[in-house]
Design a protein around this nucleic acid. Sequence first.
DNA 1: ATTATTTCTAACCGATTGGTTAGTTATAAT
DNA 2: ATTATAACTAACCAATCGGTTAGAAATAAT
Lengths: 187, 187
Amino acid sequence: MPRIKKYNEQEVIEKAMNAFWHNGYEATSMQILEKEMGINKFSIYSSFGNKNGVFLESLKCYKQKLNALINKLKDSNQGVAGIKAYFYDFIAFSKENEISKGCLITNTANEIQQDADESIKEALYSFTENVRSVFAQVLKHDATKDQATVEQQADYLIISMFGLSSATRIFNKKQLDNYIQNIFINL
Amino acid sequence: MPRIKKYNEQEVIEKAMNAFWHNGYEATSMQILEKEMGINKFSIYSSFGNKNGVFLESLKCYKQKLNALINKLKDSNQGVAGIKAYFYDFIAFSKENEISKGCLITNTANEIQQDADESIKEALYSFTENVRSVFAQVLKHDATKDQATVEQQADYLIISMFGLSSATRIFNKKQLDNYIQNIFINL
DNA sequence: ATTATTTCTAACCGATTGGTTAGTTATAAT
DNA sequence: ATTATAACTAACCAATCGGTTAGAAATAAT
């Protein structure tokens, strides 16, 4: 009986995700979302509830995209060298026309305040913990490392990723290279 | 002849700086600035031109505040150990009531876009380069390090500071500690 | 062809954004 | 005491914010 949707929710969310990635949460207005998603406010609100709903779905979409890199890391079986490759993969991933947008998760963590929506904070936390645990898992492949060392180095690497995300926005290729080389010297 | 100002520009800018530090640039409205600075719009605009002018002065104020830590580092003559102490000093510096606001420079670098005000981008860049050069200067105290190593490690350290700034907002004390310990293992 | 249902368009909502301005008040020099 | 000047208050501005809603258009089952 009903009229049929002219848009695909998965497709428009990917466009919304790119807008949030590019501009940040606050700076991405409903007006921008309408234009970028290619549908009007009514459709956005009926599909995703409100701006926060669009953002939560965008975070899920981002997670899926980044999972391609994470899965490559999991499958590489190269230990620390695989993680190092992941760092470089991320730099390429964060770029759009040679300009880096950083990491959507890190950007959001830096933007939101303590009183932000609980579901967003939870999404950031679970996402970060997930990547951290993959780092720990890969580090454990080296049998000479005890559990304490693995956990400590996983903390080091996940926070280093936060630095890399920020850094891609203002430092040059050489500096990013110096950064990554130093990170992996003693792992 | 004129009536005299009831406020001190230096004092109100420090309050503005704290508001920007706490909320970020976009989320700090003129309404918030009026309340926090304790003066009304007319006074703000006549003293600082516009919101951007208030922000630029706030960045200067932040720079002065952080310079206390930088000067301590310069005077310490402890080499790398002094830089490590600076990292811990920064964690304390970024805290307000046990909640970290991160670093105003890093927060801003993460928030602004490519089309942001040139004077703001310039302020961020010169500020960052200044800290980086102090790191290089301190590293050079170790005579066994050649210039290339010094520059490379300075890049590593300044980007690590960006990571630390983000990290203070979401990671716990133990994780921050693991992070810092690892940074300084091979310097 | 009719009808029930849903999508879509577009005008609209109050609140808030950064910024301005007319008019009042205080002050220091005359 | 008068006066020129600047600081101040508070009302105001257009534009935009996130979000709503009435009515037109499309569609699939009958």
